[in-house]
């Protein structure tokens, strides 16, 4: 087992919001509620879940782009969750992010070359004389010719822009990249290109990824470990093979069953998860999934289940799952 790169402990994030036509009611969105995980050097950890599950908030809080309400993120012996903008600056080189929408993450008034050169010059990672070589190499890394350096973002296709966004994240030679729905906005045939590119770059530079997605099928191709999140909490965390071969949490099973099948005959006969994700403004008591769970019992309504290891490399937060083998799936949705 390799070394732990980032150690995340009990991360919480709450957003105050104003409700009502005149903002007369104050309320709190519990976006992230006690998130803990160790991210291992060189691995890809994926977080999946529906909107409001806190997966993107996790990515932002780990990088301190959004300040966590409490909890710690230990990187290189420092708790970066407590740092302000200035304190965070030296760590930004190592910890990078690629956003979802390639159409809006590039400054429309800057050429691709300027956009890529800026972080290098700002952090003083290469002298000005070597910038040209560095740009050529960065563009080559993401499969673009150096002619793109003089183009503006609006002249590029979505896939090309996402390649530029990845090159920009790579510009500082980072160790860790958060991919926040990095392929969700792309066309199907381009998604595969970008996924493969991410895998190539990981091999070449030994990168560690936190890959955030809503689509379990996509995650399967890139992940060493997968965390399934629901309403700000981790429902299941497991090695990818185990999770897909033997999903234990009822929500994981429901998510898997919602993945569209490419077999037209199989696709017509499946059970669906009913209802919708409750509002994170007033999350359900106890286990937050109990309102949609086919296995819900009284205990689930009052007591939140803790994430515990039930099999080698597989942890579940569910009262109904006793162990990997002893669960009764008779009434389950999948």
């Amino acid at each position: 087992m390799s070394a732990t790169l980032l150690s995340i402990r009990d991360l919480r994030k709450e957003f105050p919001v104003r409700l009502g036509a005149f903002g007369e009611r104050a309320a709190t969105v519990h976006a992230l509620d006690g998130f803990s995980v160790d991210i291992v050097e060189g691995e890809t950890l994926s977080l999946v879940g529906e909107s409001g599950c806190g997966k993107s908030t996790t990515g932002y809080c780990v990088l301190n782009i959004q300040r966590p309400t409490s909890g710690s993120v230990i990187y290189a012996g420092t708790d970066i969750a407590k740092l302000d903008d200035d304190g965070m600056r030296p760590f930004r080189r190592d910890l990078q992010i690629v956003f979802q929408d390639p159409y809006s993450t590039l400054n429309p008034r800057m050429t691709i070359g300027d956009a890529l050169a800026e972080p290098i010059l700002f952090h003083g990672l290469a002298p000005k004389a070597e910038i040209r070589d560095r740009l050529r190499q960065l563009l080559a890394d993401v499969g673009l010719s150096e002619r793109f350096a003089n183009r503006y973002p609006h002249e590029l296709s979505g896939g090309q822009r996402q390649r530029v966004a990845i090159a920009r994240a790579l510009a500082c030679r980072p160790r860790f990249i958060v991919c926040d729905e990095a392929i969700s906005a792309l066309d199907v045939s381009v998604q595969a290109q970008i996924l493969n590119l991410l895998l190539d770059l990981q091999e070449k530079y030994g990168l560690t990824y936190l890959f955030i997605a809503h689509d379990l099928a996509v995650v399967r191709h890139i992940s060493d470990r997968v965390g399934v999140m629901y309403l700000g909490r981790m429902a299941e965390l497991a090695r990818a093979e185990a999770l897909f071969a033997r999903p234990l949490h009822p929500y994981t099973r429901a998510l898997l069953s919602a993945v569209p099948s490419t077999d037209p005959r199989a696709a017509r006969n499946r059970q669906r998860l009913q209802g919708e994700v409750p509002s994170p403004l007033s999350p359900p008591s106890g286990c937050r999934f109990h309102t949609r769970c086919p296995l819900a019992r009284d205990r689930c309504r009052s007591e939140a289940p803790a994430l515990r290891e039930v099999a080698e490399g597989q942890s579940v937060a569910c009262h109904a799952v006793a162990s990997a083998t002893e669960t009764n799936w008779e009434n389950s949705p999948a």
Binding site: I65, D85, M88, R92, Q96, L106
Partner: peptide, 9 residues
């Protein structure tokens, strides 16, 4: 893109 610039430090 402003958030992205902040993420670059």
């Amino acid at each position: 893109y402003v958030t992205a610039a902040r993420a670059l430090g």
